[in-house]
Simulated scan of single mutants.
Amino acid sequence: MTSSFEARILELGLELPRPPKSLANYVATYTTSSLLFISGQLCMGVDGKLVAAGSVGEEVSLEDGALAARAAAINVLAQARAALGSLDRVKQIVRLGGFIAAPTSFADHARIMNGASDLMVEVFGEQGRHTRSTIGVASLPLQAAVEVEALIEIQ
């Protein structure tokens, strides 16, 4: 693992988009003491369009659902960089919360959310290992398939 998370982003060939603007009356990030809270980020690609729309297990395949979770996590990183100036200020990814649009019979939420969790470990190594909640929901804003929020310890 390199000593710089910013360098690691480049090594992985990741492109962090301009952070998406909040869709309603809330802030995208909030910093207090040594914690950065990041509001839920939808699965938007760098082109600003949803990577996956609809319900996982119905209109969205498991593979595309995991890619959507990864895209949402990339937006989490974009928000973190915008708030902190550099991802090198990240001390620990503390928690991710994942919301998966899926039918009530769907039971593979964890597999989908691994798209986001795996990305954090790819970028931050052991400092990317985190606690997590993964919740199935009937729908998400803009009909997104996945939304991811985060709590990050900073230095």
Rank of each mutant, 00 (worst) to 15 (best):
M1Y: 06
E6R: 01
E6G: 00
A7W: 00
A7C: 00
A7M: 08
I9F: 10
L10F: 00
L10Q: 14
G13F: 08
G13A: 07
L14H: 05
L14E: 06
L14T: 04
L16G: 05
P17K: 06
P19A: 14
P20F: 11
P20L: 10
P20Q: 09
S22C: 05
A24P: 00
A24Q: 10
Y26D: 07
A28N: 10
Y30W: 12
Y30D: 12
Y30P: 00
T32K: 13
T32V: 13
S33L: 12
S33T: 09
S34Q: 12
F37K: 01
F37P: 00
S39K: 04
G40S: 15
Q41R: 15
L42A: 06
M44P: 00
G45Q: 08
G45I: 08
G45H: 09
V46C: 05
D47Y: 08
K49F: 09
V51Q: 11
A52S: 13
A52T: 11
G54T: 09
G54Q: 07
S55F: 01
S55A: 15
V56I: 15
G57T: 05
G57Q: 03
V60F: 07
S61C: 05
S61E: 08
E63C: 00
E63K: 13
D64S: 08
G65T: 07
G65S: 06
A66R: 15
A66N: 01
A66P: 01
A66W: 04
A68R: 04
A69Q: 04
A71F: 03
A72S: 14
A72Y: 11
A73W: 08
A73I: 06
A73R: 02
A73C: 14
A73Q: 10
I74A: 01
V76T: 09
V76R: 02
L77Y: 09
A78C: 04
A80T: 05
A80C: 06
R81V: 01
A82E: 13
L84Q: 10
L84C: 09
L84R: 07
S86V: 11
L87Y: 06
L87K: 03
L87P: 02
L87A: 07
R89D: 12
R89M: 12
V90M: 10
K91A: 15
K91L: 12
V94R: 12
V94D: 14
L96H: 03
G97P: 00
G97E: 12
G98N: 12
G98E: 12
I100C: 14
I100H: 11
A101V: 10
A101Q: 14
A102L: 07
A102I: 06
D108N: 13
D108H: 13
R111P: 00
N114F: 12
G115H: 13
G115E: 14
G115W: 14
A116T: 03
A116G: 07
S117N: 14
D118N: 15
L119G: 03
M120Q: 01
V121D: 01
G125S: 12
E126G: 02
E126D: 14
G128P: 01
H130P: 00
H130N: 15
R132G: 05
T134R: 01
T134W: 09
T134Y: 13
I135E: 13
I135H: 02
G136R: 09
V137H: 05
V137I: 12
A138M: 04
S139G: 02
P141A: 08
P141C: 06
L142T: 05
L142W: 05
Q143M: 04
A145P: 02
V148R: 04
V148I: 15
E149V: 00
A150K: 01
L151S: 08
L151H: 01
I152E: 08
I152P: 04
I154M: 06
Q155M: 03
